[in-house]
Write a protein that binds this DNA or RNA. Structure first.
Lengths: 169, 169
DNA sequence: TGAATCCGCACCGCGTAGGTGCTATTATGG
DNA sequence: CCATAATAGCACCTACGCGGTGCGGATTCA
C-alpha cells in the first residue's frame, strides 16, 4: 500500500524516453522493446497520457508519440492522476468529490460520520502530499543529472537549504 | 492508488481514542461502538498494533487496550507499517528487500533491468516519503489542536516558516 | 494496396483489501 | 470452581482493481 501503480512507472519511463528524444516521433513499440515492457500495456498507458494532453500522438505508419508539454511545467501529479485513475486520495474522506461537494456542505462518506476525530488531520496530510506531487516537475524527475540529496538523518533540521533542482517535500 | 488502507484509518481512530483516555483500559468493542466501526475488524487492527508494540493489551474481563508508547515518539510511519503490511514501497524497486539485499549487490526485480532510467529518481522520492512519514508524530497528528497550515498556493515559496508543531514534508 | 501504427473497447485472471466467524485462551467476579 | 467477559489466533469468504491480452477499426505512409 501507499504505492504507485505500475502504469505510472511505465508512464515515467516512456516520458523519460520522449524527453531525451524531442526530435523523434517515437512509436510505443520502440520504447517497449528498449525497456522490455509489454508493448500492448504501454500503448494503453500512452493513450491515457495522450488523453491527458501530456503527449501528442501521430497515427499511421511512421507514427508515434511526442512530448507535448513543457517538462518544467508538467508535474508528477499530472502523471499520477492520469495513470492512477483520478485524483489520489489518502483516504476516502480526502476524495475530491467529497471535498468539493456541490452542496457546499461536505458529504460524509465513511461510517464514522461527522464525529471522526482523524478527518481533519488526514486531510492536512493529503494536502501536503498533493502539494508535494505538484512540486515535482517532470524535468527534475527525469533529467539524467538527478541526484538524491537526502542527508540521511538530518531530520529535525529545517530542510530549507536544498538546491533548486532538488525535490522538496 | 497512493492511498492508505482502511486498516490504517481505523488504527488512527483507535489510537486517538486511547490517547484521549490514558487512564482507561478501553476494550475494542467500546471504540468500535462509539465510531461505528465493525468491531471484529477493529480487533484485527488492534492486534496488529499490539504485535508492533504500539498498544498494550489486557486480556480477560475488564480487559482492553492501552497506549504503550510515547505519542511524541511513535510516528505515522509505524502505524502504516503495521497496518499496511510491511514497509511502504512507492514502486517494486523501492522495496526494503530489494534495497538492502543480503548480497550487497541490489537485486533488480522489474523487467526493465539495470538500465531503468527512473529507478534512482523514484528511490529518491521514496526516501522522501518515508522520511516524511517518520516525521509525523502521533501526538502531532492526533492532538485535537491540530490545524492545517497550508497557505493554499504558497507553492514556490520555501516553507521553512512553519510552526514547530505542524507537519513538514 | 499493403504495412505500420495508433484507437477504442471488451475481456480475463489473479492478488489483495476488506470483512466475517469460530474456537482457544486468559482473567475477573461471584 | 464456574460463568462470563474479553482478547488471540486462526481460517475463510467476497468483491474489486491492477496488470495484462485481444480484436476490429481508423489512419497514414510507401
Amino acid at each position: 500500500m501507499l504505492a504507485l501503480p505500475k502504469k505510472t512507472d511505465y508512464a515515467l519511463i516512456a516520458l523519460h524516453y520522449l524527453l531525451e528524444h524531442p526530435d523523434r516521433i517515437a512509436p510505443a513499440r520502440e520504447i517497449a522493446e528498449i525497456y522490455h515492457l509489454p508493448c500492448a500495456l504501454l500503448m494503453n498507458v500512452m493513450k491515457e497520457l495522450q488523453q491527458g494532453g501530456l503527449v501528442r500522438s501521430v497515427r499511421g505508419a511512421k507514427g508515434g508519440y511526442q512530448l507535448s508539454v513543457d517538462p518544467r511545467q508538467a508535474t508528477l501529479y499530472d502523471v499520477v492522476v492520469l495513470t492512477g485513475g483520478g485524483e489520489p486520495a489518502l483516504t476516502e474522506c480526502c476524495q475530491d468529490a467529497v471535498l468539493h461537494a456541490p452542496s457546499g456542505a461536505e458529504e460524509i462518506r465513511c461510517q464514522v460520520g461527522s464525529g471522526c476525530p482523524v478527518r481533519q488531520p488526514l486531510r492536512a496530510l493529503h494536502h501536503r502530499l498533493v502539494r508535494f506531487l505538484k512540486d515535482v516537475k517532470l524535468a527534475d524527475l527525469l533529467q539524467p543529472g538527478y541526484r538524491i540529496d537526502v542527508p540521511l538523518e538530518s531530520v529535525g533540521v529545517t530542510s530549507s537549504s536544498v538546491t533548486a533542482s532538488s525535490i522538496r517535500f
